[in-house]
Design a protein around this nucleic acid. Structure first.
Lengths: 151, 151
DNA sequence: GCAAAATGCTTGCATGTGCAAGCGATTCGC
DNA sequence: GCGAATCGCTTGCACATGCAAGCATTTTGC
């Protein structure tokens, strides 16, 4: 018996599986070719797509579904190797923004090319343009409307 | 300029984001209501859907995109609380299969209900049945054809 | 104005995970 | 058959991460 519940469940399972497959493949190439993790890539991407190209640590944490302490500990080595820097807020001394350096933006650009290549593998030669359009639009509708989105 | 590459990239980013949003929400409810992690749930689900309802540790590792040592360390506490047991292979003494106990299957059943409920939230009231059908079929095509699939 | 609550960030501790090494069992090459 | 290579699993170590506590700063309630 196929009912709506089953279809939702199956779709959600497939969604998780496809995302994890893709991410697992990405992980190897990222560390080998670019020397960064997928999460570090996503951190740089969040910065690039944020207003003013900078984000506080708690904002980053919410967008990346990790704790604030993880952001602190992710940013430290990225500062050390010059991918990101920090900016303080004039009005609120508690805020410490994370900003991408020029080096960080270059790293993001190179990593994004790898990402796009693999994204192409994931879809290409299987789907019509129209199908992909529709798929992308469906996913857009599934992302929460907070606006703090990557795509 | 919108080209195929951009569309693939955007779709892949959205795919990852939706999957992580969903998984993050699931994680809290699973630990609070069922006392298991999402990965433990997925381990039980892999067992349920495997032929003979059992899998070796390396098979589990491949299907779950984790290392073999992680399976060893995940299975140990699950054995302790009676969710899974172990079976040895008569012909190959190296193989130690992981099998779900009755308790484990009950836990899976309850957890799957939570999963389905949240999967329903993810899709329901937004999509037509036909759209969801198509979405599910698209995801099916994106899963590698090894057959070791959950859905 | 000021104390209390809230906010942003960091740190200590516990847990989860991957990698490499090690051990026992099996298969391969000859 | 037998040694070497392979395979399945486990363990030591290092690293990543969440939670709770702590500190500094800001906002709130009065």
């Amino acid at each position: 018996m196929i009912c709506m519940t089953d279809l939702c469940t199956t779709s959600a399972l497939r969604l998780i599986q496809v995302a994890e497959d893709f991410r697992a493949g990405l992980s190897g190439e990222f560390s080998a070719v670019h020397g960064i993790s997928v999460n570090e890539f996503l951190l740089l991407l969040h910065l690039e797509r944020a207003t003013a190209n900078r984000l506080s640590r708690v904002d980053l944490a919410k967008r990346m579904h990790v704790s604030a302490s993880t952001i602190t500990r992710m940013a430290a080595p990225m500062e050390k190797i010059g991918l990101v820097g920090r900016e303080v807020d004039d009005r609120d001394a508690r805020l410490v923004f994370v900003v991408a350096t020029v080096t960080g933006r270059e790293k993001l650009s190179q990593s994004l090319a790898t990402f796009s290549k693999r994204a192409g593998y994931l879809f290409s030669n299987r789907w019509e343009d129209e199908e992909l359009d529709q798929f992308s639009e469906m996913l857009r509708r599934m992302i929460g409307g907070t606006g703090d989105t990557l795509a």
